[in-house]
């Protein structure tokens, strides 16, 4: 049952990727979609330079506003981030983010020894907040050229999702770009390869330690309309939820931890059915 639900989640992730990256012509011609829907943000880390992208990555959009000459803060993008966060929290990471799907699939590759967390997990888990503050908010706004324009630091130097979904497909299909490949591209591909290798060994290392979008949505987990509750009358504190949780969360103690990506493994494993989501409760009530 739990395995079936896991497969269902992967199909849902793939379907959402297809829905938000439906400009197939872009992949064939090495060009990107230029319609008005790109003024809207999609929930996940989905680069707007991906040839198929029909919307904008919220982190990319936020940086494009912050490093512009016209604005210093963005009500618009913060509005989208808050809206997605208030509705779903990190359900976005577990179900709607394309780079999350890639890491999920890589983790399925067999390896001699899988580890739940990377060494230094206790401290590394806070690194995503450093990335958010430094690379997404501060550097693009503070370091500007003589014309007042900044750079999208996170997208330029870190984001492996942009390399995978935009950089590689565009460079592979667009001869003009092939001539411009240099050190930065090699750096970004190296980061992508490293992230990929670590994803085979450990579950979603990018989401756990680096992703600024996950850092933002994590804050909304306790208050989002979609959240988890543990029924104290049913819970026997057997820790089955913690054992199955690949994000290493004490679910029975912290069902709305900022680390939880709402994959649902804990809900499906709990022998007492003590963990439920607000959606489960609503559907259950309607059935009655």
């Amino acid at each position: 049952m739990a395995k079936k639900r896991g497969i269902l989640r992967h199909w849902f992730q793939a379907a959402f990727f297809a829905l938000t990256n439906g400009y197939v012509v872009g992949f064939l011609t090495g060009k990107i979609y230029q319609g008005n829907t790109k003024a809207l943000c999609v929930p996940g880390l989905n680069c707007y330079s991906c040839p198929g992208a029909l919307g904008s990555c919220p982190i990319g959009a936020l940086q494009s506003i912050l490093d512009s000459r016209t604005f210093t803060v963005s009500a618009y993008v913060f509005g989208f981030l808050m809206g997605f966060g208030a509705l779903f929290g990190r359900f976005v990471c577990g179900w709607l983010c394309p780079f999350g799907l890639v890491q999920d699939l890589l983790y399925k590759i067999p390896f001699v020894k899988k580890v739940k967390n990377l060494p230094g997990h206790k401290y590394l888990r806070y690194f995503r907040y450093v990335v958010l503050v430094l690379f997404v908010l501060l550097l693009p706004a503070v370091i500007v050229d003589i014309t007042g324009m900044g750079k999208p630091w996170f997208c330029e130097y870190i984001c492996p999702s942009g390399t995978l979904f935009a950089g590689i497909p565009l460079v592979a299909t667009n001869p003009d770009l092939q001539g411009a490949v240099g050190g930065l591209f090699i750096w970004k591909v190296s980061l992508l390869v490293l992230t990929g290798l670590l994803s085979v060994i450990s579950y979603r290392p990018f989401c756990k330690y680096v992703c600024p979008l996950g850092a933002i949505y994590g804050w909304f987990n306790p208050v989002a309309l979609y959240r988890y509750t543990v029924d104290p009358d049913k819970c026997t504190e057997c820790s089955a939820c913690k054992k199955v949780c690949k994000m290493d969360i004490d679910v029975w103690k912290h069902p709305n931890s900022p680390d939880c990506i709402r994959c649902g493994d804990c809900k499906n494993t709990c022998p007492e059915n003590a963990i439920s989501s607000t959606l489960d409760k609503m559907l259950h009530k309607n059935k009655k």
């Binding site: 003024a39 330079s49 984001c159 390399t163």
Partner: peptide
């Protein structure tokens, strides 16, 4: 409310302008 304020300030045009052109920095060309 924030989205409405952003629309009134003209922010979507800035997002669109960036998103409809290949972002050289984002794809690692610089």
């Amino acid at each position: 409310l924030l989205i409405i304020i952003g629309v009134l300030r003209g922010e979507p045009a800035t997002v669109l302008q960036k998103a409809i052109h290949i972002c050289m920095e984002c794809i690692g060309i610089g």
